[in-house]
Design a protein around this nucleic acid. Structure first.
Lengths: 294, 294
DNA sequence: CTTTTTATCTGACTAATGTCAGATAATGGA
DNA sequence: TCCATTATCTGACATTAGTCAGATAAAAAG
């Protein structure tokens, strides 16, 4: 690891902590405790479930409870039992709460503007582009990949995106609902497995492995969200699936690929997969890869 | 102001606050209150004056006093009266304190490394370059320019840099000491003024105006630190000096410039200065500018 | 040699932030 | 129906963070 680069990243972290700390203290902290302001901000215009806020902000349930109570007393938030599940409290902003939120948003906008106005238009553009790159590249390290059950709402969301992407590229609609539900058992051990990539809890990619005849696994449904493509997420998912394959003593992994997804093909090739005979001719599949596991 | 750009800057602020907040909470906060850890980190290997820490971290003197006391009790820091000024307490880390500091540095390095290792070498390079740009461009809005007395240590430091820059470009040494001390009175109202640009308290630029014969001011010692060049600091200093000139009913401002500093010349031209006859022929001066104040 | 300023310390507070162990009620599954 | 689980609430704490008004001593100014 290049020590100079590490130094520069640390420097960046320090100055950003300093600058953004100043932001949070002076802009969001207007007469109201920071915790309350943050909560108000996170509830936002569409409202939110208390449960969700707790996990998003990683706060103690008792603490959140009291914060919400305080916001209620100030007439900024209303809490009512959820429709589907009466245990989960649904929080929405009152009219006064919306007013406050707009105030907070305004302050945060002013801060952003104060950064931009100091620059020429060309510099503004350059700054924003660099920010986008920093965000994108830094997110790579925050992406976590874990094995998960394939029948959650998030998994379903990934599958839908996977099929939509396919459909977009081929100009064909895929009948997702049927395909998705049929899969759930096949993608659970010992029949197979399902890996999901998450960024701050939000799904941003997935991949599945289903075990066919003895010792042969088939990798499918590899999908990576557009905003994190090029960050090596696909490769990491593939590696996890291969490890699972080894643990289950598989000897060969196969992948189908189509003509259009060139990135996918080069991922497979660079991961040691070699093109073989069609092992399972199907529509929209033009290439067949396999790799022997050691 | 472009709303989309403002949105992107806000998004950047949010994700960075989130990511770096996680860093501060989980990495730097190892069994010790964050305040103490920060202080330890700021004292650092070379030690620091308590006074300096107070202003750098913007903390209440009572609060710092107690934090230091706590660190002393833990055997991490020793405080002794300063050599030059026995009021100013000099803080140094004990052996155990150094150990702790190394621990903190190590954690922060690990965090930086975890960001980099997720990327390919080319991406690492790109990320670091983007970070540098973001830091640089964001610092523009944090630079504050104020009128200050010209005989402080910081002013002196700026002057030395100014003369060093000149000397470097002409391959000549300037006798700074004599020139600097003689100036102090000329650059204080009503004889003139002195403006200093600061970034987080650190001087990063200066400019002076001295009032000559009736109604004529001469601008001199315009200097901008290399790391913030191109951010419009020179222009802002110039504008401040012009405002001062108007307040003192000056009608004309003059500037001398030399052949080599092309950036300076274009700054003057773009600020409405026009080239005139030599009003004060001197070595190393090749261009004379003036501007009528309205 | 006074007087003022500066740097720090101390005591007395307050508010914010957070933690933990039950209590309570809705839900889901056996 | 009964039981375990889940989501939240409540009370009782503890710690952290921060403020403010003097007190004290060294240094600088007059």
């Amino acid at each position: 690891m290049d020590a100079e680069q590490v130094r520069l990243v640390r420097k960046f972290n320090r100055t950003m902590t300093h600058r953004l700390g100043a932001l949070n203290d002076s802009f969001l902290n207007r007469g109201r405790p920071l915790g309350e302001a943050r909560l108000l901000y996170e509830i936002g215009a569409p409202g939110a479930d208390l449960r969700e806020l707790r996990s998003r902000l990683e706060l103690d349930s008792g603490y959140v409870s009291r914060l919400v109570r305080s916001l209620e007393r100030q007439g900024l938030v209303t809490a009512r039992p959820g429709k589907n599940d009466a245990r989960v409290r649904r929080l929405t902003l009152t009219r006064a709460g919306m007013q406050e939120l707009r105030q907070l948003v305004r302050l945060s906008e002013e801060f952003a503007e104060s950064i931009l106005t100091a620059l020429t238009p060309a510099q503004q553009n350059h700054l924003v582009n660099c920010m986008i790159e920093v965000e994108r590249l830094m997110s790579a390290s925050a992406i976590q990949i874990t094995f998960e059950p394939p029948d959650t709402e998030d998994a379903r969301w990934c599958f839908e995106n996977y099929f939509r992407d396919l459909g977009d590229r081929f100009g064909v609609g895929f009948d997702t609902d049927q395909t998705i539900s049929a899969m759930s058992e096949l993608l659970t051990p010992p029949n197979g497995t399902f890996a999901m990539a998450r960024l701050d809890g939000r799904p941003v990619g997935c991949g599945a492995l289903s075990i066919k005849e003895s010792r042969i696994g088939e990798i499918k449904r590899m999908w990576v969200a557009p905003e994190v493509r090029g960050l090596g997420v696909g490769k990491r998912i593939l590696t996890m699936l291969e490890e699972f394959g080894r643990d289950f003593s598989l000897t060969v992994l196969r992948i189908e690929a189509n003509r259009i997804l060139g990135e996918a093909q080069s991922l497979y090739r660079s991961s040691g997969y070699t093109e073989t005979e069609p092992f399972n001719p199907r529509p929209f599949v033009h290439h067949w890869f396999e790799k022997k596991l050691k």
